[in-house]
Design a protein around this nucleic acid. Structure first.
Length: 568
RNA sequence: GCCCCUGUAGUUUAGUGGAUAUAAUGCGGGCCUGCGGAGCCUGUGACUCGGGUUCGAAUCCCGACAGGGGCACCA
Protein backbone atom coordinates (compact mmCIF):
# COMPACT_ATOMS: atom_id res chain seq x y z
CA UNK A 1 0.00 0.00 0.00
CA UNK A 2 2.78 2.35 0.96
CA UNK A 3 4.40 1.64 -2.40
CA UNK A 4 1.19 2.40 -4.26
CA UNK A 5 0.75 5.66 -2.41
CA UNK A 6 4.32 6.66 -3.14
CA UNK A 7 3.95 5.76 -6.78
CA UNK A 8 0.88 7.92 -7.24
CA UNK A 9 2.49 10.86 -5.48
CA UNK A 10 5.62 10.50 -7.56
CA UNK A 11 3.62 10.48 -10.75
CA UNK A 12 1.53 13.53 -9.90
CA UNK A 13 4.50 15.45 -8.52
CA UNK A 14 6.26 14.90 -11.78
CA UNK A 15 3.44 15.74 -14.18
CA UNK A 16 2.33 18.80 -12.20
CA UNK A 17 5.65 20.17 -10.96
CA UNK A 18 8.29 18.27 -12.83
CA UNK A 19 9.60 17.02 -9.48
CA UNK A 20 11.76 13.92 -9.68
CA UNK A 21 13.36 13.75 -6.24
CA UNK A 22 12.84 11.23 -3.47
CA UNK A 23 9.33 10.61 -2.24
CA UNK A 24 8.49 8.92 1.02
CA UNK A 25 5.12 8.19 2.52
CA UNK A 26 5.41 8.09 6.29
CA UNK A 27 2.68 7.24 8.76
CA UNK A 28 0.63 10.19 9.96
CA UNK A 29 2.18 10.82 13.37
CA UNK A 30 -1.02 11.40 15.30
CA UNK A 31 -2.72 8.85 17.46
CA UNK A 32 -5.97 7.72 15.96
CA UNK A 33 -5.12 8.70 12.39
CA UNK A 34 -4.39 5.83 10.09
CA UNK A 35 -2.78 6.68 6.82
CA UNK A 36 0.24 8.15 5.11
CA UNK A 37 1.77 11.55 5.00
CA UNK A 38 4.12 13.14 2.54
CA UNK A 39 6.30 16.23 2.58
CA UNK A 40 6.80 16.63 -1.18
CA UNK A 41 5.15 20.04 -1.15
CA UNK A 42 7.96 21.30 1.11
CA UNK A 43 10.57 19.99 -1.28
CA UNK A 44 8.91 21.52 -4.33
CA UNK A 45 8.27 24.82 -2.59
CA UNK A 46 11.85 24.81 -1.35
CA UNK A 47 13.07 25.70 -4.81
CA UNK A 48 11.11 28.97 -4.71
CA UNK A 49 12.53 30.82 -1.82
CA UNK A 50 10.55 34.02 -2.13
CA UNK A 51 6.98 33.22 -1.26
CA UNK A 52 7.69 29.96 0.45
CA UNK A 53 4.62 29.84 2.64
CA UNK A 54 2.23 30.74 -0.12
CA UNK A 55 3.81 28.39 -2.62
CA UNK A 56 3.72 25.61 -0.04
CA UNK A 57 0.02 26.04 0.52
CA UNK A 58 -0.78 26.17 -3.18
CA UNK A 59 1.32 23.17 -4.05
CA UNK A 60 0.06 20.98 -1.24
CA UNK A 61 -3.55 21.82 -2.02
CA UNK A 62 -3.19 21.29 -5.74
CA UNK A 63 -1.42 17.99 -5.26
CA UNK A 64 -3.93 16.81 -2.70
CA UNK A 65 -6.84 17.44 -4.99
CA UNK A 66 -5.15 15.71 -7.91
CA UNK A 67 -4.15 12.50 -6.15
CA UNK A 68 -6.33 9.60 -7.10
CA UNK A 69 -6.50 6.25 -5.31
CA UNK A 70 -8.79 3.26 -5.16
CA UNK A 71 -11.29 2.35 -2.50
CA UNK A 72 -8.61 1.74 0.13
CA UNK A 73 -8.22 5.50 0.62
CA UNK A 74 -11.04 7.41 2.28
CA UNK A 75 -9.86 11.00 2.02
CA UNK A 76 -6.94 13.25 1.21
CA UNK A 77 -6.12 16.47 3.00
CA UNK A 78 -3.53 19.22 2.79
CA UNK A 79 -2.57 20.39 6.29
CA UNK A 80 0.18 22.94 6.92
CA UNK A 81 1.98 21.83 3.81
CA UNK A 82 1.74 18.13 4.60
CA UNK A 83 -0.48 15.98 2.45
CA UNK A 84 -2.31 13.40 4.53
CA UNK A 85 -3.79 10.37 2.88
CA UNK A 86 -6.25 8.57 5.13
CA UNK A 87 -6.93 4.90 4.73
CA UNK A 88 -10.35 3.42 4.47
CA UNK A 89 -9.84 1.46 7.64
CA UNK A 90 -12.30 -1.34 7.20
CA UNK A 91 -11.32 -2.21 3.63
CA UNK A 92 -7.64 -1.96 4.34
CA UNK A 93 -7.88 -3.95 7.56
CA UNK A 94 -9.43 -6.85 5.69
CA UNK A 95 -6.80 -6.67 3.02
CA UNK A 96 -3.87 -6.59 5.41
CA UNK A 97 -5.13 -9.41 7.61
CA UNK A 98 -5.63 -11.64 4.59
CA UNK A 99 -2.13 -10.78 3.42
CA UNK A 100 -0.67 -11.65 6.81
CA UNK A 101 -2.47 -14.95 7.07
CA UNK A 102 -2.33 -16.15 3.47
CA UNK A 103 1.11 -15.10 2.23
CA UNK A 104 4.67 -15.37 3.55
CA UNK A 105 4.17 -11.98 5.13
CA UNK A 106 7.23 -9.74 5.28
CA UNK A 107 9.45 -12.13 3.35
CA UNK A 108 11.71 -10.23 0.98
CA UNK A 109 12.08 -11.08 -2.67
CA UNK A 110 15.15 -13.21 -3.26
CA UNK A 111 18.28 -11.16 -3.75
CA UNK A 112 21.40 -12.08 -5.62
CA UNK A 113 23.99 -11.21 -2.99
CA UNK A 114 25.48 -14.10 -1.06
CA UNK A 115 26.51 -13.00 2.39
CA UNK A 116 28.74 -14.69 4.91
CA UNK A 117 28.18 -13.80 8.53
CA UNK A 118 30.96 -14.85 10.86
CA UNK A 119 30.01 -14.73 14.51
CA UNK A 120 30.44 -16.19 17.99
CA UNK A 121 34.20 -16.96 17.65
CA UNK A 122 34.77 -18.50 21.05
CA UNK A 123 38.23 -19.19 22.43
CA UNK A 124 38.92 -22.76 23.32
CA UNK A 125 40.41 -23.32 26.77
CA UNK A 126 38.25 -20.51 28.15
CA UNK A 127 34.67 -20.16 29.32
CA UNK A 128 31.78 -18.92 27.24
CA UNK A 129 30.76 -15.64 28.86
CA UNK A 130 28.11 -12.99 28.36
CA UNK A 131 30.28 -11.14 25.83
CA UNK A 132 30.18 -14.20 23.59
CA UNK A 133 26.51 -14.35 24.31
CA UNK A 134 25.85 -10.88 22.92
CA UNK A 135 27.89 -11.73 19.86
CA UNK A 136 26.12 -15.04 19.31
CA UNK A 137 22.62 -13.61 19.76
CA UNK A 138 23.44 -10.75 17.39
CA UNK A 139 24.96 -12.95 14.73
CA UNK A 140 22.32 -15.65 14.85
CA UNK A 141 19.53 -13.10 14.62
CA UNK A 142 21.23 -11.27 11.78
CA UNK A 143 21.53 -14.51 9.83
CA UNK A 144 17.80 -15.17 10.22
CA UNK A 145 16.87 -11.63 9.31
CA UNK A 146 19.06 -11.55 6.21
CA UNK A 147 17.67 -14.88 5.07
CA UNK A 148 14.12 -13.72 5.61
CA UNK A 149 14.91 -10.54 3.70
CA UNK A 150 15.83 -12.71 0.74
CA UNK A 151 19.59 -13.11 0.88
CA UNK A 152 21.49 -16.31 0.61
CA UNK A 153 23.52 -16.52 3.81
CA UNK A 154 26.40 -18.64 5.04
CA UNK A 155 26.63 -18.71 8.84
CA UNK A 156 30.25 -19.15 9.87
CA UNK A 157 32.04 -19.63 13.15
CA UNK A 158 35.73 -19.21 13.82
CA UNK A 159 37.12 -21.28 16.64
CA UNK A 160 40.16 -19.66 18.21
CA UNK A 161 41.87 -22.89 19.08
CA UNK A 162 45.46 -21.72 18.99
CA UNK A 163 47.51 -18.66 19.79
CA UNK A 164 48.95 -17.25 22.94
CA UNK A 165 45.95 -17.84 25.16
CA UNK A 166 46.08 -21.53 24.34
CA UNK A 167 49.82 -21.63 24.92
CA UNK A 168 49.39 -20.01 28.32
CA UNK A 169 46.70 -22.45 29.23
CA UNK A 170 48.72 -25.47 28.11
CA UNK A 171 51.75 -24.21 29.99
CA UNK A 172 49.78 -23.88 33.21
CA UNK A 173 48.06 -27.22 32.71
CA UNK A 174 51.27 -29.10 31.97
CA UNK A 175 53.20 -27.46 34.78
CA UNK A 176 50.63 -27.49 37.56
CA UNK A 177 47.72 -29.73 36.57
CA UNK A 178 49.27 -32.41 34.43
CA UNK A 179 46.90 -35.23 33.46
CA UNK A 180 44.00 -33.73 35.41
CA UNK A 181 40.55 -34.40 34.02
CA UNK A 182 37.83 -31.76 34.11
CA UNK A 183 34.93 -31.97 36.56
CA UNK A 184 31.35 -31.88 35.34
CA UNK A 185 31.35 -28.11 34.89
CA UNK A 186 34.14 -28.10 32.34
CA UNK A 187 33.73 -24.52 31.27
CA UNK A 188 34.45 -22.99 34.62
CA UNK A 189 37.35 -25.29 35.26
CA UNK A 190 38.95 -24.41 31.93
CA UNK A 191 38.60 -20.75 32.75
CA UNK A 192 40.15 -21.19 36.17
CA UNK A 193 43.29 -22.65 34.71
CA UNK A 194 43.55 -19.76 32.30
CA UNK A 195 43.13 -17.23 35.10
CA UNK A 196 45.72 -19.06 37.16
CA UNK A 197 48.10 -18.91 34.19
CA UNK A 198 47.82 -15.16 33.79
CA UNK A 199 48.22 -14.59 37.50
CA UNK A 200 51.36 -16.70 37.63
CA UNK A 201 52.77 -14.98 34.56
CA UNK A 202 52.10 -11.56 36.00
CA UNK A 203 53.97 -12.44 39.14
CA UNK A 204 56.81 -14.19 37.38
CA UNK A 205 57.35 -12.73 33.90
CA UNK A 206 60.32 -15.05 33.40
CA UNK A 207 57.88 -17.91 32.75
CA UNK A 208 56.89 -16.19 29.49
CA UNK A 209 59.79 -17.91 27.84
CA UNK A 210 58.31 -21.31 28.59
CA UNK A 211 54.98 -20.21 27.16
CA UNK A 212 56.68 -19.01 24.02
CA UNK A 213 58.32 -22.37 23.65
CA UNK A 214 55.00 -24.13 23.90
CA UNK A 215 53.53 -21.89 21.22
CA UNK A 216 56.41 -22.73 18.92
CA UNK A 217 56.10 -26.44 19.57
CA UNK A 218 52.38 -26.14 18.87
CA UNK A 219 52.96 -24.51 15.52
CA UNK A 220 55.66 -27.03 14.64
CA UNK A 221 53.21 -29.80 15.45
CA UNK A 222 55.28 -31.40 18.18
CA UNK A 223 53.34 -34.67 18.72
CA UNK A 224 53.59 -34.50 22.49
CA UNK A 225 52.02 -31.07 22.64
CA UNK A 226 49.50 -31.80 19.90
CA UNK A 227 48.17 -34.76 21.83
CA UNK A 228 47.43 -32.71 24.93
CA UNK A 229 46.15 -29.86 22.84
CA UNK A 230 43.67 -32.03 20.97
CA UNK A 231 42.38 -33.65 24.09
CA UNK A 232 41.93 -30.41 26.01
CA UNK A 233 40.53 -28.58 23.04
CA UNK A 234 37.82 -31.20 22.71
CA UNK A 235 36.66 -30.40 26.24
CA UNK A 236 36.03 -26.86 25.06
CA UNK A 237 34.33 -27.95 21.88
CA UNK A 238 31.97 -30.19 23.81
CA UNK A 239 30.96 -27.19 25.88
CA UNK A 240 30.44 -24.97 22.85
CA UNK A 241 28.25 -27.50 21.12
CA UNK A 242 26.22 -27.96 24.25
CA UNK A 243 25.69 -24.20 24.51
CA UNK A 244 24.85 -23.72 20.82
CA UNK A 245 22.37 -26.50 21.20
CA UNK A 246 20.79 -24.79 24.18
CA UNK A 247 20.66 -21.48 22.37
CA UNK A 248 19.47 -23.18 19.19
CA UNK A 249 22.03 -21.56 16.92
CA UNK A 250 23.53 -23.28 13.90
CA UNK A 251 26.54 -22.75 11.70
CA UNK A 252 27.05 -23.82 8.13
CA UNK A 253 30.83 -23.63 8.38
CA UNK A 254 33.38 -23.90 11.17
CA UNK A 255 36.80 -22.40 10.61
CA UNK A 256 39.66 -23.19 12.97
CA UNK A 257 42.56 -20.90 13.70
CA UNK A 258 44.87 -23.87 13.84
CA UNK A 259 44.26 -24.60 10.16
CA UNK A 260 44.92 -21.04 9.05
CA UNK A 261 48.34 -19.98 10.20
CA UNK A 262 50.38 -21.78 7.57
CA UNK A 263 48.37 -20.24 4.77
CA UNK A 264 48.61 -16.95 6.61
CA UNK A 265 52.37 -17.12 6.64
CA UNK A 266 52.34 -17.79 2.91
CA UNK A 267 50.24 -14.71 2.30
CA UNK A 268 52.64 -12.71 4.43
CA UNK A 269 55.49 -13.95 2.24
CA UNK A 270 53.59 -12.80 -0.83
CA UNK A 271 53.06 -9.43 0.82
CA UNK A 272 56.79 -9.17 1.31
CA UNK A 273 57.42 -10.01 -2.33
CA UNK A 274 54.91 -7.40 -3.41
CA UNK A 275 56.71 -4.96 -1.14
CA UNK A 276 53.60 -4.39 0.90
CA UNK A 277 55.05 -5.96 4.03
CA UNK A 278 58.52 -5.22 5.33
CA UNK A 279 60.77 -6.13 8.21
CA UNK A 280 60.90 -3.96 11.27
CA UNK A 281 62.52 -4.79 14.59
CA UNK A 282 62.57 -8.42 13.55
CA UNK A 283 58.85 -8.64 12.91
CA UNK A 284 57.04 -8.30 9.61
CA UNK A 285 54.81 -5.28 9.34
CA UNK A 286 52.62 -3.43 6.86
CA UNK A 287 53.17 0.30 7.13
CA UNK A 288 49.65 1.25 6.13
CA UNK A 289 49.90 5.00 6.65
CA UNK A 290 52.97 5.12 4.47
CA UNK A 291 51.40 3.00 1.72
CA UNK A 292 48.09 4.82 1.75
CA UNK A 293 49.46 8.30 2.23
CA UNK A 294 47.51 8.87 5.42
CA UNK A 295 48.81 10.37 8.61
CA UNK A 296 48.57 8.39 11.82
CA UNK A 297 45.24 6.79 10.88
CA UNK A 298 45.89 3.15 10.05
CA UNK A 299 49.12 2.85 12.07
CA UNK A 300 51.41 -0.09 11.51
CA UNK A 301 50.03 -3.55 11.15
CA UNK A 302 52.17 -6.36 12.52
CA UNK A 303 51.58 -9.51 10.49
CA UNK A 304 54.22 -11.89 11.83
CA UNK A 305 56.02 -12.09 15.18
CA UNK A 306 59.75 -11.65 15.33
CA UNK A 307 60.09 -15.28 16.42
CA UNK A 308 58.29 -16.35 13.26
CA UNK A 309 55.05 -17.48 14.89
CA UNK A 310 51.68 -16.41 13.59
CA UNK A 311 49.45 -13.76 15.06
CA UNK A 312 45.71 -13.34 14.95
CA UNK A 313 46.50 -10.85 12.19
CA UNK A 314 48.31 -13.50 10.17
CA UNK A 315 45.40 -15.88 10.35
CA UNK A 316 42.81 -13.28 9.50
CA UNK A 317 44.44 -12.74 6.13
CA UNK A 318 44.20 -16.44 5.34
CA UNK A 319 40.64 -16.60 6.61
CA UNK A 320 39.52 -13.74 4.39
CA UNK A 321 41.13 -15.37 1.38
CA UNK A 322 39.46 -18.68 2.13
CA UNK A 323 36.09 -16.98 2.45
CA UNK A 324 36.45 -15.19 -0.87
CA UNK A 325 37.81 -18.10 -2.84
CA UNK A 326 36.06 -21.01 -1.24
CA UNK A 327 32.54 -19.70 -0.90
CA UNK A 328 31.99 -17.20 -3.69
CA UNK A 329 30.52 -14.65 -1.35
CA UNK A 330 29.61 -11.09 -2.30
CA UNK A 331 29.64 -9.64 1.18
CA UNK A 332 31.55 -10.69 4.24
CA UNK A 333 30.34 -9.62 7.65
CA UNK A 334 32.45 -10.01 10.79
CA UNK A 335 30.53 -9.78 14.04
CA UNK A 336 33.32 -8.80 16.43
CA UNK A 337 33.64 -6.45 19.40
CA UNK A 338 34.30 -2.78 18.76
CA UNK A 339 37.70 -2.85 20.46
CA UNK A 340 38.91 -4.54 17.29
CA UNK A 341 37.87 -1.78 14.92
CA UNK A 342 41.36 -0.71 14.05
CA UNK A 343 42.38 -4.29 13.51
CA UNK A 344 39.68 -4.85 10.91
CA UNK A 345 40.38 -1.59 9.13
CA UNK A 346 43.94 -2.82 8.88
CA UNK A 347 42.95 -6.26 7.62
CA UNK A 348 40.60 -4.86 4.99
CA UNK A 349 43.10 -2.26 3.78
CA UNK A 350 45.87 -4.82 3.61
CA UNK A 351 43.67 -7.18 1.60
CA UNK A 352 42.83 -4.34 -0.73
CA UNK A 353 46.52 -3.56 -1.23
CA UNK A 354 47.16 -7.24 -1.86
CA UNK A 355 44.68 -7.09 -4.73
CA UNK A 356 41.56 -8.70 -3.28
CA UNK A 357 38.75 -6.70 -4.80
CA UNK A 358 36.23 -8.28 -2.41
CA UNK A 359 37.96 -6.44 0.42
CA UNK A 360 35.62 -3.54 -0.23
CA UNK A 361 32.68 -5.78 0.54
CA UNK A 362 33.99 -6.72 3.96
CA UNK A 363 32.17 -5.22 6.88
CA UNK A 364 33.04 -5.25 10.55
CA UNK A 365 29.78 -5.33 12.47
CA UNK A 366 31.03 -4.16 15.81
CA UNK A 367 29.21 -4.19 19.07
CA UNK A 368 30.01 -2.62 22.39
CA UNK A 369 31.05 -4.29 25.59
CA UNK A 370 28.93 -6.13 28.03
CA UNK A 371 30.06 -4.76 31.34
CA UNK A 372 29.26 -6.05 34.73
CA UNK A 373 27.86 -3.44 37.07
CA UNK A 374 31.21 -2.39 38.48
CA UNK A 375 33.69 -2.56 35.63
CA UNK A 376 34.83 -3.98 32.33
CA UNK A 377 34.55 -7.66 32.03
CA UNK A 378 37.82 -9.38 31.41
CA UNK A 379 38.86 -12.96 31.77
CA UNK A 380 42.30 -11.79 32.75
CA UNK A 381 40.87 -10.29 35.90
CA UNK A 382 38.60 -13.18 36.58
CA UNK A 383 35.71 -10.75 36.90
CA UNK A 384 33.26 -12.22 34.44
CA UNK A 385 29.76 -13.60 34.20
CA UNK A 386 29.65 -17.02 32.62
CA UNK A 387 26.81 -17.90 30.35
CA UNK A 388 26.01 -20.96 32.47
CA UNK A 389 25.68 -18.95 35.66
CA UNK A 390 23.54 -16.33 34.00
CA UNK A 391 21.26 -18.95 32.55
CA UNK A 392 20.91 -20.73 35.87
CA UNK A 393 19.97 -17.52 37.67
CA UNK A 394 17.36 -16.55 35.09
CA UNK A 395 15.96 -20.05 34.93
CA UNK A 396 15.46 -20.22 38.66
CA UNK A 397 13.48 -17.00 38.57
CA UNK A 398 11.44 -18.12 35.58
CA UNK A 399 10.54 -21.43 37.16
CA UNK A 400 9.32 -19.66 40.25
CA UNK A 401 7.08 -17.43 38.12
CA UNK A 402 5.73 -20.36 36.16
CA UNK A 403 4.89 -22.21 39.34
CA UNK A 404 2.78 -19.30 40.54
CA UNK A 405 0.33 -19.92 37.72
CA UNK A 406 -1.94 -22.86 37.30
CA UNK A 407 -2.27 -22.39 33.56
CA UNK A 408 0.81 -24.49 32.93
CA UNK A 409 0.40 -27.80 34.68
CA UNK A 410 2.70 -29.94 32.63
CA UNK A 411 6.05 -28.99 31.16
CA UNK A 412 6.85 -26.40 33.78
CA UNK A 413 10.55 -26.89 33.17
CA UNK A 414 10.13 -26.55 29.44
CA UNK A 415 8.15 -23.35 29.83
CA UNK A 416 10.73 -21.94 32.23
CA UNK A 417 13.43 -22.78 29.71
CA UNK A 418 11.64 -20.98 26.89
CA UNK A 419 11.00 -17.93 29.03
CA UNK A 420 14.60 -17.84 30.31
CA UNK A 421 16.10 -17.97 26.86
CA UNK A 422 13.63 -15.39 25.62
CA UNK A 423 14.58 -13.06 28.45
CA UNK A 424 18.29 -13.50 27.85
CA UNK A 425 18.17 -13.14 24.09
CA UNK A 426 15.86 -10.17 24.13
CA UNK A 427 18.04 -8.32 26.62
CA UNK A 428 21.04 -8.94 24.37
CA UNK A 429 19.26 -7.72 21.24
CA UNK A 430 17.07 -4.83 22.23
CA UNK A 431 19.88 -2.32 22.50
CA UNK A 432 21.66 -0.82 19.53
CA UNK A 433 24.87 -2.77 18.91
CA UNK A 434 27.15 0.16 19.58
CA UNK A 435 25.79 0.86 23.00
CA UNK A 436 27.34 -0.66 26.07
CA UNK A 437 25.24 -3.13 27.98
CA UNK A 438 25.77 -2.67 31.67
CA UNK A 439 24.81 -5.99 32.97
CA UNK A 440 22.90 -6.05 36.21
CA UNK A 441 22.14 -9.60 37.36
CA UNK A 442 19.07 -8.37 39.22
CA UNK A 443 17.63 -6.77 36.10
CA UNK A 444 18.38 -9.83 34.02
CA UNK A 445 15.92 -11.92 35.97
CA UNK A 446 13.19 -9.30 35.86
CA UNK A 447 10.29 -10.02 33.53
CA UNK A 448 8.56 -6.65 33.53
CA UNK A 449 8.55 -3.97 30.89
CA UNK A 450 10.68 -4.20 27.75
CA UNK A 451 11.51 -7.85 28.10
CA UNK A 452 11.21 -11.06 26.18
CA UNK A 453 8.62 -12.34 28.62
CA UNK A 454 6.34 -9.39 27.93
CA UNK A 455 6.26 -10.34 24.26
CA UNK A 456 5.94 -14.05 24.86
CA UNK A 457 3.13 -13.32 27.29
CA UNK A 458 1.20 -11.37 24.67
CA UNK A 459 1.65 -14.26 22.28
CA UNK A 460 0.48 -16.78 24.85
CA UNK A 461 -2.67 -14.83 25.65
CA UNK A 462 -3.51 -14.35 21.99
CA UNK A 463 -2.99 -18.05 21.38
CA UNK A 464 -5.33 -18.91 24.21
CA UNK A 465 -8.13 -16.92 22.62
CA UNK A 466 -7.63 -18.75 19.36
CA UNK A 467 -7.75 -22.07 21.18
CA UNK A 468 -11.36 -21.27 21.94
CA UNK A 469 -12.53 -19.95 18.59
CA UNK A 470 -11.36 -19.19 15.07
CA UNK A 471 -12.14 -16.50 12.53
CA UNK A 472 -13.85 -16.89 9.19
CA UNK A 473 -11.89 -14.66 6.87
CA UNK A 474 -14.48 -14.72 4.11
CA UNK A 475 -17.05 -12.84 6.18
CA UNK A 476 -14.62 -10.59 8.04
CA UNK A 477 -15.98 -7.06 8.55
CA UNK A 478 -14.67 -4.48 11.00
CA UNK A 479 -17.44 -1.89 10.63
CA UNK A 480 -16.19 0.84 12.97
CA UNK A 481 -12.68 0.25 14.25
CA UNK A 482 -11.69 1.21 17.77
CA UNK A 483 -8.49 3.20 18.35
CA UNK A 484 -6.80 0.09 19.75
CA UNK A 485 -7.77 -2.03 16.77
CA UNK A 486 -6.57 0.58 14.33
CA UNK A 487 -3.33 1.06 16.20
CA UNK A 488 -2.62 -2.66 16.33
CA UNK A 489 -3.36 -3.00 12.61
CA UNK A 490 -1.10 -0.10 11.81
CA UNK A 491 1.77 -1.72 13.70
CA UNK A 492 1.16 -5.02 11.93
CA UNK A 493 1.41 -3.37 8.51
CA UNK A 494 4.97 -2.23 9.13
CA UNK A 495 6.46 -5.70 9.61
CA UNK A 496 7.78 -6.00 6.03
CA UNK A 497 9.60 -2.68 6.15
CA UNK A 498 11.00 -3.62 9.57
CA UNK A 499 12.46 -6.80 8.11
CA UNK A 500 13.99 -4.83 5.28
CA UNK A 501 15.40 -2.13 7.52
CA UNK A 502 16.96 -4.40 10.08
CA UNK A 503 18.52 -6.40 7.24
CA UNK A 504 19.89 -3.43 5.32
CA UNK A 505 21.28 -1.80 8.44
CA UNK A 506 22.43 -5.07 10.03
CA UNK A 507 20.49 -4.21 13.17
CA UNK A 508 18.48 -6.90 14.93
CA UNK A 509 17.69 -4.27 17.57
CA UNK A 510 15.20 -2.73 15.13
CA UNK A 511 13.33 -6.01 14.96
CA UNK A 512 13.49 -6.41 18.73
CA UNK A 513 11.93 -2.99 19.30
CA UNK A 514 9.32 -3.75 16.69
CA UNK A 515 8.21 -7.01 18.24
CA UNK A 516 7.87 -5.23 21.55
CA UNK A 517 5.65 -2.65 19.87
CA UNK A 518 3.40 -5.34 18.45
CA UNK A 519 3.07 -6.92 21.89
CA UNK A 520 2.30 -3.56 23.44
CA UNK A 521 -0.35 -2.72 20.83
CA UNK A 522 -1.87 -6.14 21.37
CA UNK A 523 -2.02 -5.78 25.14
CA UNK A 524 -3.76 -2.43 24.75
CA UNK A 525 -6.24 -3.98 22.36
CA UNK A 526 -6.71 -6.97 24.61
CA UNK A 527 -7.73 -4.85 27.55
CA UNK A 528 -10.00 -2.52 25.60
CA UNK A 529 -11.70 -4.89 23.19
CA UNK A 530 -13.41 -8.10 24.25
CA UNK A 531 -13.12 -10.78 21.61
CA UNK A 532 -15.02 -13.89 22.60
CA UNK A 533 -17.83 -11.92 24.27
CA UNK A 534 -18.32 -9.50 21.38
CA UNK A 535 -21.24 -9.44 18.94
CA UNK A 536 -20.82 -12.05 16.17
CA UNK A 537 -19.58 -9.71 13.42
CA UNK A 538 -17.17 -7.89 15.70
CA UNK A 539 -16.08 -11.14 17.28
CA UNK A 540 -15.20 -12.61 13.91
CA UNK A 541 -13.22 -9.53 12.89
CA UNK A 542 -11.36 -9.46 16.19
CA UNK A 543 -10.56 -13.14 16.01
CA UNK A 544 -9.00 -12.48 12.62
CA UNK A 545 -7.00 -9.63 14.09
CA UNK A 546 -5.79 -11.79 16.99
CA UNK A 547 -4.81 -14.48 14.54
CA UNK A 548 -2.83 -12.02 12.42
CA UNK A 549 -1.14 -10.70 15.56
CA UNK A 550 0.07 -14.11 16.73
CA UNK A 551 1.35 -14.69 13.24
CA UNK A 552 3.46 -11.52 13.19
CA UNK A 553 4.62 -11.97 16.79
CA UNK A 554 5.76 -15.47 16.04
CA UNK A 555 7.59 -14.50 12.85
CA UNK A 556 9.25 -11.54 14.54
CA UNK A 557 10.34 -13.57 17.55
CA UNK A 558 11.69 -16.25 15.28
CA UNK A 559 13.93 -13.69 13.62
CA UNK A 560 15.33 -12.93 17.06
CA UNK A 561 15.81 -16.61 17.82
CA UNK A 562 13.12 -16.51 20.50
CA UNK A 563 10.42 -19.12 20.89
CA UNK A 564 6.77 -18.13 21.08
CA UNK A 565 5.02 -20.28 23.71
CA UNK A 566 1.25 -20.86 23.57
CA UNK A 567 0.99 -21.00 27.33
CA UNK A 568 3.30 -19.72 30.01
C1' G B 1 48.92 13.33 20.97
C1' C B 2 46.03 10.76 16.97
C1' C B 3 41.68 7.63 15.44
C1' C B 4 36.76 5.47 16.47
C1' C B 5 32.11 5.09 19.30
C1' U B 6 28.49 7.30 22.68
C1' G B 7 26.02 11.89 25.04
C1' U B 8 17.84 12.40 24.84
C1' A B 9 13.22 12.25 31.60
C1' G B 10 16.39 10.15 38.30
C1' U B 11 18.03 5.45 35.45
C1' U B 12 17.82 2.43 30.63
C1' U B 13 16.20 3.77 25.72
C1' A B 14 13.66 4.87 20.22
C1' G B 15 14.42 8.31 16.68
C1' U B 16 19.77 7.77 9.46
C1' G B 17 16.02 16.55 7.61
C1' G B 18 9.48 17.12 8.70
C1' A B 19 3.81 18.16 12.36
C1' U B 20 2.64 17.54 19.36
C1' A B 21 10.47 13.74 20.67
C1' U B 22 9.29 6.87 21.37
C1' A B 23 9.05 3.67 25.13
C1' A B 24 10.61 1.07 29.62
C1' U B 25 11.76 1.56 34.66
C1' G B 26 11.27 4.58 39.11
C1' C B 27 7.86 7.57 42.01
C1' G B 28 2.14 9.18 42.81
C1' G B 29 -3.12 7.65 41.76
C1' G B 30 -6.49 3.86 39.75
C1' C B 31 -8.26 -1.30 37.30
C1' C B 32 -9.58 -8.72 38.35
C1' U B 33 -17.67 -12.24 40.06
C1' G B 34 -14.66 -10.32 32.24
C1' C B 35 -10.54 -13.89 26.67
C1' G B 36 -4.78 -15.26 31.88
C1' G B 37 -2.83 -8.89 36.52
C1' A B 38 4.43 -11.56 33.70
C1' G B 39 -1.09 -7.20 32.15
C1' C B 40 -4.00 -2.33 31.52
C1' C B 41 -5.32 3.05 32.52
C1' U B 42 -3.49 7.73 34.53
C1' G B 43 -0.05 11.64 36.55
C1' U B 44 5.35 13.07 36.73
C1' G B 45 9.63 14.03 33.87
C1' A B 46 14.52 14.68 28.71
C1' C B 47 17.38 16.23 23.24
C1' U B 48 25.42 18.19 27.03
C1' C B 49 26.93 23.31 25.44
C1' G B 50 28.13 27.14 21.41
C1' G B 51 28.11 28.39 16.32
C1' G B 52 26.54 27.16 11.15
C1' U B 53 23.57 24.89 6.78
C1' U B 54 18.04 24.64 5.83
C1' C B 55 11.37 26.79 4.72
C1' G B 56 12.34 23.12 8.76
C1' A B 57 17.82 20.11 12.99
C1' A B 58 17.76 15.34 18.51
C1' U B 59 19.20 14.06 13.35
C1' C B 60 23.79 17.20 8.70
C1' C B 61 28.62 20.46 9.22
C1' C B 62 32.34 23.06 12.51
C1' G B 63 34.08 23.79 17.58
C1' A B 64 34.00 22.82 22.82
C1' C B 65 32.82 19.57 27.02
C1' A B 66 31.95 14.60 29.25
C1' G B 67 32.26 9.04 29.20
C1' G B 68 34.16 4.55 26.78
C1' G B 69 37.44 1.93 23.37
C1' G B 70 41.85 1.59 20.33
C1' C B 71 46.87 3.12 18.71
C1' A B 72 54.00 -2.90 17.33
C1' C B 73 54.51 -8.28 17.78
C1' C B 74 47.06 -9.95 22.90
C1' A B 75 42.48 -11.26 20.52
Amino acid sequence: MKDLVEKEIRQKAQTLYNYTGEIEAKPIPFKGDWGFSTTVAFKIAGTRRKDFQQALREISETLASNLDFGEEISRIEAVNGYINIYLNANTYAQYIIKTILNTPYGKGTSKKDKIMVEYSQPNTHKAFHIGHLRNTCLGASLVSILRYAGYSVVAANLINDTGSHVAKWLWCYLTYHKAEEPPEKKSEWLEQIYVEATQKLNKNPEFELQVKKILQRLEQKDPEIIEVWEKTKQWSMDEFHRIYNELNVQFDVYFYDSTLYEEGKQIVQELVEKEIAEESEGALIVDLDHLLGTDDVYKTYVVLRSDGTALYQTKDLALAKRKFEGYGIDRSIYVVGSEQKLHFQQVFKTLELAGFKQARKCYHLSYELVMLKGGKMSSRLGNIVFYDDLYAAVYEEALEEVEKRDIVQENKEETARIVSLGAIKFSMLRKDNNKVIVFDPKEAVNFEGQTGAYIQYAHARASRILEKDQADLATMDFEELTVQERNLLEVLTTFPETVEQSAERYKPSIMAMYVFEVAKAFNEFYHACPVLQAEPVTKNARLALVSATTHVLKSGLELLGIEAPERM
